[in-house]
Design a binder for these strands. Structure first.
Lengths: 356, 356
DNA sequence: TTAAAAAATGTAACGGATTACATTTTGCCA
DNA sequence: TGGCAAAATGTAATCCGTTACATTTTTTAA
């Protein structure tokens, strides 16, 4: 591959002129500019971005730490990130960490070793914690080159992008309560996650407001996989006094749960209502179509990238906390509790899977 | 961040000794080595990988071109790539191209500009074609730093990893024929794709072998999305003589199609059998569980990465074509054709076989 | 026409690690 | 203990753009 000196030789100018022609054309006379551009073309010259970045100290790479790309929701988030990154001339380095702290630390080190400028974390964990703190004696404790999105730390040392999970879970629970349900189960995510904690809190808020006592046995653990929803539903159905509605913390678990319920010969929602969270594409095509909380997944990604770039460019002094809106999407998987006869089901607008 | 000169100063040695201590420790005496390592620790020194890579000319980055990460199958492939890349100290740059040639070319340029060493393409298209060919006068026409996987070009100028789509589609069609189906529809992928062409060919192979005439109206176009399966099924059901089985070229379309079929009041598989392709996680949790062709998605990713690294390291002289195995997974969405009562399927005879 | 200002171009240092080659130190044997 | 080979270490070039500063050319104004 030819380099800038080669081009300079061909155009019979200095390397500085070549560089300027490409970076700040108005500093170069038209005649010289044309000469240089011709030489560039003749030499098939492409600046070595590795060299540019080495010198500038900016890699224009962003690392994304995602528990698993195989999760449909995260895939959408990443899709949004990709879009925003591409628009800003950044590239995305994918870190599929499987929730492993060790692996996350390895990727975080890419920032320290100048392989990437910053990092986006989709899990409630600070990967820099595992690394020895660099120059702690700095006078200006700048923000970490990180953004925490979706599942966020309680006291994140960086900007965050988050949903009001508590309010969303509350809204869904209220929807179920309004349908007459009193025994409402929840299939949770991994226990230690703040996200799960918030959703459980919202669920309890709604129960309390309605004067429905909280029953610990209706809280079932899951891990966001189809199978875990299936298994948790089995446990819930085996209770002496099973629930009439199951609120799952994501759509995969809801689909798994519905599968189990139907296998048992029960009908959704006639016998048991099921609700999900996320509104992945499969939700609208589930049988019955799934009532869920729609999250602006792509917007999470876009916002996270934009915030990170702002941090990197020093445009932020404080770490903002962006709260994105959710939407209660009522489809056919939730209905009146058994025994409750069409008691004015609130705004029952089942949307067809016709619109994507 | 401290650099190698800082460490050299601290350890009172030359920069060369520091570099050797870290790269080829056996060339350095134990005493010096310890001194250097202490200095490294004291300075909190991390080699600037940007500099290392600039000098070595190797970025240790691989670009992945994927039509859409939101596709569950591709997400699994990427997951496998990630694994293999990480094992080999490579990082993955994600290129979500949405099937756009322009975008693909932009990512391919990253290889030319030394932002990445090589590229993996999951679509049947050579992104380097759009770029002006560099040094075509080379005496040794080396392999392109590219691997083409999943959806591959007919005459790929690089290693490929592929499924025998024709055989797989043939196997599934044979399964449906064995169940007594004679009017078997296929919901295709995008028309111009070799992958779709091969699957249609396999479908026709099986029909022909069974002496079942091919009917063009049973070939319905789709684009691998849930919605397109839904729409295509609607069209097929509206035919004067609708199919008794629908073979979809991926699981999403199959799930969409089942949704449509059930909405029409028909039963799967009692009235219509439905088969998919890919065996994504949702397939087993569909209602009914989906009969499909299982592909080793993660293995596609792993193999592609390994092959690419081999190319980059010059270990390959010719471009190998790796064919991965498929598996026919029979679940509950396929059953005997209506009217066929567990009998030998080949006793079925058409009264007036229309010649085409 | 000439001096001064403005525009264009050139020179060379710089960034951080690697490494060929040069130099110094150590180890060993006679 | 001298002398030589081997081991250890040092010096400086190199990778390739960018850019501060220096120099040359052109333009402007008097």
């Amino acid at each position: 591959m030819s380099n800038i000196r080669e081009v300079a030789r061909l155009a019979e100018v200095s390397v500085a002129t070549v560089s300027r022609t490409l970076q700040q054309p108005d500093l170069v006379s038209l005649k010289t500019r044309n000469k240089v551009l011709a030489a560039v073309k003749a030499a098939g010259y492409k600046p070595n971005l590795m060299a540019v970045r080495f010198r500038s100290g900016k890699t224009h790479n962003l690392v994304v730490l995602v528990p698993t790309v195989a999760n449909v929701f995260f895939a959408r988030v990443i899709s949004g990130m990709q879009e925003a990154a591409h628009d800003n001339q950044y590239a995305l380095l994918l870190g599929n960490t499987l929730g492993d702290d060790e692996m996350e630390a390895a990727y975080a080190r890419m920032v320290q070793t100048s392989q990437a400028d910053g990092l986006i974390q989709l899990r409630a964990h600070n990967p820099f914690d595992a690394l020895q703190q660099q120059d702690a004696g700095d006078d200006s404790p700048a923000l970490l080159p990180m953004v925490n999105a979706c599942e966020v730390l309680d006291k994140a040392p960086c900007p965050t992008v988050v949903l009001d999970n508590r309010a969303a879970a509350c809204a869904m629970t209220e929807h179920l309560l309004a349908l007459g349900h009193r025994r409402i189960a929840m299939i949770k995510g991994p226990a230690r996650s703040p996200l799960t904690r918030d959703r459980v809190a919202g669920y309890r808020d709604a129960l309390q407001a309605a004067g429905v006592p909280f029953a610990a046995e209706l809280l079932s653990p899951g891990n966001f996989s189809l199978q875990s929803g299936f298994d948790a539903a089995a446990d819930l159905l085996a209770l002496p006094n099973p629930p009439t509605a199951i609120f799952c913390e994501n759509d995969e678990m809801a689909i798994g749960a519905m599968q189990r319920i139907k296998q048992q010969g029960l009908r959704v929602p006639a016998d048991i209502s099921v609700a999900g969270f996320d509104d992945i594409s499969f939700a609208a095509f589930a049988d019955p179509p799934l009532t869920t909380i729609a999250q602006p997944a792509e917007e999470f990604g876009r916002t996270a990238v934009r915030l990170l770039i702002d941090v990197l460019e020093g445009k932020l002094s404080k770490a903002p906390k962006v709260i994105l809106p959710f939407d209660l999407v009522i489809r056919a998987s939730t209905g009146p509790a058994p025994g409750v006869h069409q008691r004015q089901p609130d705004l029952q607008q089942k949307d067809q899977p016709d619109k994507t």
